[in-house]
Design a protein around this nucleic acid. Sequence first.
DNA 1: CGAAAATTTGAGTAACGTCAACTCAAGTGG
DNA 2: CCACTTGAGTTGACGTTACTCAAATTTTCG
Lengths: 240, 240
Amino acid sequence: MSVAASVLRTPVQPQFERTIATRESGRPGLGAHLDHLREHGMRLRYRRNEAVFACGDAAAHIYRVAAGCIRLCRHVGDGRRSVSDFMLPGDVFGLGGFRLFPYTAEAVGPATVVAYPAVLFEQLCEDNAPLQNDLLSHYSRLLARTQQQLFVTTCQTARERVASFIIMMSQRDQLAFGDRVDLPMGRQDIADFLGLTVETICRSLASLKKAGTIAVPNAHQVSLIDVEALRALAGGSTAQ
Amino acid sequence: MSVAASVLRTPVQPQFERTIATRESGRPGLGAHLDHLREHGMRLRYRRNEAVFACGDAAAHIYRVAAGCIRLCRHVGDGRRSVSDFMLPGDVFGLGGFRLFPYTAEAVGPATVVAYPAVLFEQLCEDNAPLQNDLLSHYSRLLARTQQQLFVTTCQTARERVASFIIMMSQRDQLAFGDRVDLPMGRQDIADFLGLTVETICRSLASLKKAGTIAVPNAHQVSLIDVEALRALAGGSTAQ
DNA sequence: CGAAAATTTGAGTAACGTCAACTCAAGTGG
DNA sequence: CCACTTGAGTTGACGTTACTCAAATTTTCG
């Protein structure tokens, strides 16, 4: 099922930008439907920390990640930030039936995103049972992910949260080479995602490394040494 | 829009069991659609802590709360528990397109629930655009609630979480009399919902009480004295 | 290569958890 | 009706985890 072949022509840095093709294969999702809007898709490039849209903006488009990583987050007055999710190549975001976006979307690193007019998508939905179905299962999966995340942040210790995060990323990361997992986001992003501080992330990683559970070849990659131990820490419930 | 009139005939204790009528009015939701399945709805009563269904059970029905309060939660091996949501009268749960329930549903106190066969609901969905729409907005709202909850548990202190919880309950509780808010669930439930301990809940409530923000006439009610202070603690983002 | 930012490590502290005792409310049976 | 039982809620003392502040180190990018 080759998808979005025409969208991706520009060569991208393999380090930070991973293409759709590797992720999309085998998973139905919404991608196939969005391809019907290919003509109307705007290809947008963002630099590190640039906003795709801000919380409160009019929700005029829906988006699909072509390459890179986008974080969905909310800022609060006094500098605190909550990262609710990371969008990887192939992931669709900005859907929700709201008129204004309830969260901000920012590029973690250099990223490419395709924007489709929301109106056209809604038109596409009408009298389109397969799309409606896929849309429902999209929400359903998203909800399950969010509830899992809620579980992680309410019940688990710092070490356990980091373990859960690595497991989660290893399951999402189709480009994982061997047992190497890419972490395109920075430590602060991970911290705000897990409800911890940068320092605690570092210490937890160091602790897992010392225990022989993982190796950390560089700041943006993790090697899984003892997956069983990692799963045990993450606590059985690692279902996606 | 009078809804589900025939479902409720048994008189219920006003203390713990609140009826659909007060909540359903004015909100479209899925209730109107479920009434088409009225004939097939089974009325079920549960005692305190009884399970409506357990995590892993076959998802053969969907449910609507008629009276009482249901908690949706997950248990983990070592005794920890995460409460992901509380369902109040009128709320629909058990939807999600999964074959097995990914969470447990338990009665917080005496509760009445109406169960509808999932198969019939799916049939009802087919070629039913308005229902499909309401279903989508149901998911959308649920997702927004869960993300808000994620924000609360990752970013806020104990006091702030309790403040957020009270605000949330005051917004959901249509039966709030004046500024009295009912808390049908116990302290342990609140603790597992907010990712804290029972003791911390008590201390936070005591702290808010001492600050003159709330009053606590009894363990299952809270009076809002200084709503502005409470909102400030909960942090602007109290959108439902 | 050099400046700026991110990551990592260390030391001290605050917030929340743990353990334990006590109080209170509700239900039960005599 | 009341003593008794039981479980939930509350409060206090203490311990632990994770946060804060600070500095060293590495990486990134102009």
